[in-house]
Computed example of a mutant assay.
Amino acid sequence: MVTQAARAMWERFEPVHDLVYFAPEARRAADGLGMRGFWMGYFALRAAPLGPVSAPVVTACFYVFHPNRVARALPDAWRYAAPGDVLDARAQAMDAAMTRLLGTDVVSSAWMTEAADLAWRAAEAADTAGRPLAAANQALDRPRRPHTRLWQALTTLREHRGDGHVATLVGHGVAPVEAMVLKAASGESDAALLREGRKWDPADWRRAEAQLRERGWLDEAGALTPAGVTGRAAIEAQTDAVAEAPWKALGQDGTARLAALLDPLTTTVATSGLLPHGNPVGVTRAGAGG
């Protein structure tokens, strides 16, 4: 079933995409551009395909961050480096990180080229109407080196799924903090990590919990009710369903081949110790969440 493929592929490519946040090469690249601290680097590296956008635009696109978290980074980041320079540094960082983790023989191998080309085909087929982050990444030039081409294609696919997830949350009337509360209540991610990383204060969190209790999705102990389990499952199922286009275009055989090629790479990243404990992205594949 295609929607099963959509989730299975996400759980493979999400850890690889996440190198841009957690690999030391990414932090050095951001610091080298003059970015001030982890979060300025995070927002600049992720938002650069959109151009020199403002904090409100990024807050809307990224959805789950407190506006103040974003406003501390943007637009100041663009005073230190233009988005084009950030993109160049991002590509160089991913080149270095993947080469270090996998080795020169792997990044220059025939299977890496095959994986990159399959992923690029899927990314080119991604439907980007209403998906700003996916569209911005899809519009970037095709990298020459296979491993950086693979990373960029997987990033386009990741943002494609993420944009669809945001649209689904909006359609279900789930606000940003409520989305974080639901993720934590499901057991996928650590509540404190989500709250502190996205800069929501305890009052924001308690207010979201109260709203979900009023909706019947959360009980007094902070656990999902049966209605909450059903509601969240519907959100996840719709997220997967609207992420199906790239995999339909790639076809069952191409998707299965890419999955097999990604497996060792995903395992290497997931077991590297780079991804944070507490699993902020909610990946459930064994070992992928830190």
Rank of each mutant, 00 (worst) to 15 (best):
L224F: 13
A203Q: 12
V181L: 03
A245V: 06
G216M: 04
A233L: 11
L265H: 06
G162Y: 09
A259S: 05
Q252P: 07
G222Q: 04
L194V: 08
D201C: 11
G231T: 01
A245I: 07
L218D: 13
A192F: 00
G273I: 12
D201H: 11
A223N: 08
L169M: 12
G273F: 01
L250E: 06
W217P: 06
G171I: 00
S189C: 06
E196A: 15
V242W: 02
A221R: 14
D190F: 00
V177I: 14
D253T: 08
A185E: 00
V229R: 10
T255D: 03
K199M: 15
I235T: 05
R158A: 15
D240C: 08
V166G: 09
L193V: 06
A210E: 09
E244W: 04
A179S: 13
T230R: 10
A175T: 04
A241T: 15
D263V: 14
L261E: 05
L193Y: 05
A245H: 10
A210C: 11
L262Y: 04
R257A: 11
G222T: 04
G197F: 02
V269F: 09
T168Q: 08
A175P: 02
E220K: 04
D204P: 05
K248S: 07
V177T: 08
A185D: 01
K199Y: 12
L258H: 11
T255Q: 04
P176A: 14
L169K: 05
A221V: 01
A192D: 06
A192K: 00
R161F: 12
G216C: 09
A203W: 04
G222F: 07
T225S: 11
K199S: 15
E196R: 08
S189W: 00
K248R: 11
Q238I: 07
E188L: 14
L169D: 11
D190M: 01
P176T: 15
T168K: 14
R161M: 07
W200G: 07
T268D: 04
D204V: 12
I235C: 06
T239P: 13
S186N: 02
W205E: 09
E209D: 07
A208L: 07
R158D: 11
D201Q: 11
A270R: 00
G222K: 01
K199I: 15
A249H: 01
G164D: 10
T168H: 03
E236W: 12
V269W: 08
D263C: 15
V229P: 07
A167C: 03
A221F: 02
A208N: 02
L193G: 13
R195H: 13
D253E: 14
T255N: 10
T225I: 15
G187D: 13
R215W: 03
A260G: 07
